[in-house]
Design a protein around this nucleic acid. Structure first.
Lengths: 148, 148
DNA sequence: TACTAACTCTACAAAGTCGATGTAGTTTTC
DNA sequence: GAAAACTACATCGACTTTGTAGAGTTAGTA
């Protein structure tokens, strides 16, 4: 299960991607439309801002907007920022590798071998699907090619 | 990330599958070899027993053994027993469906659509891979066919 | 029969995580 | 200078995770 926070972050980014670029969008507007607690959404957007995904403008006519094109922001990137590693086991994480404390040898670990396949399958979807893909209700480019 | 408990459960099942059938294996033996806290492993095996995956024999020459053949126990089944639903979102779970409290319409939910693909990919591996597959260091039957 | 090694069951506790909420600002525009 | 919006931390209650503790039950063995 992904966290509620990650779900909110993705929904907020999708909402921002739907707005016309240029004019910033109020937090309050996103919060209301997407039924996200406003204060909680502030934290989330701040986090995304600190990671360079969105930009904000202060003051009365302020608000948030995407800093990068929607087709360059993958679901995987957002999940890693909000929830941390995507890998099902610490010894399979690319961004936060850690040896399983109780594992004797990784090479012969049966559990690891199976979850390596899970990790590949999951990343295959998450790292290839962008906010723009989600918006357009289509499969991400490479998966589409495979199906076609 | 799967829980430590689930990892222990899978490792214990793999260990049991390696034992010659018939003679029960002590909890203490598995705990020591796999570096799992014994009392914790007791709880886990009890849980697996209550779900019909393993059988136990009490008394001095007691112990645990697989109740079903290793090739009928999938990773997905074990994970669902120990960790609960595998789905990344509550609205995508088959065993514990729940509407996302903040979601307006499921059909038009962009986030759900993407994670439905993730869920399919994950289940594709977990529900087709059995303890026996893990043991034999090979791909599960259906995936193997696809590769071949 | 008594011993003992094994499983069974319940309870609990320390630590961490999750999902917010609260308070106190700062910046910008009207 | 008031209002609207963002910024930054601090805090909080509920829950989950990862074990630990201890008393009880069962059955093989001397």
């Amino acid at each position: 299960m992904i966290s509620q926070k990650a779900k909110y972050a993705l929904r907020a980014l999708v909402a921002l991607a739907k707005q016309p670029p240029g004019a910033p969008t109020f937090i309050g507007e996103i919060a209301e439309k997407q039924k996200i607690p406003k204060k909680f959404l502030e934290q989330i957007l701040l986090d995304l801002k600190n990671h360079g995904l969105v930009a904000s403008k202060r003051g009365k006519a302020g608000g948030y907007g995407l800093l990068r094109p929607a087709d360059t922001i993958s679901f995987g990137e957002v999940l890693r920022i909000i929830d941390g590693p995507i890998a099902p086991l610490p010894c399979l994480s690319k961004i936060a590798y850690a040896k399983c404390s109780d594992c004797q040898e990784e090479a012969s670990c049966e559990v690891r071998r199976v979850f390596a396949q899970v990790a590949d399958a999951t990343r295959g979807v998450l790292d290839r699907t962008t906010i723009a893909d989600a918006l357009e209700a289509r499969l991400p480019p490479r998966l589409r090619d495979a199906v076609a």
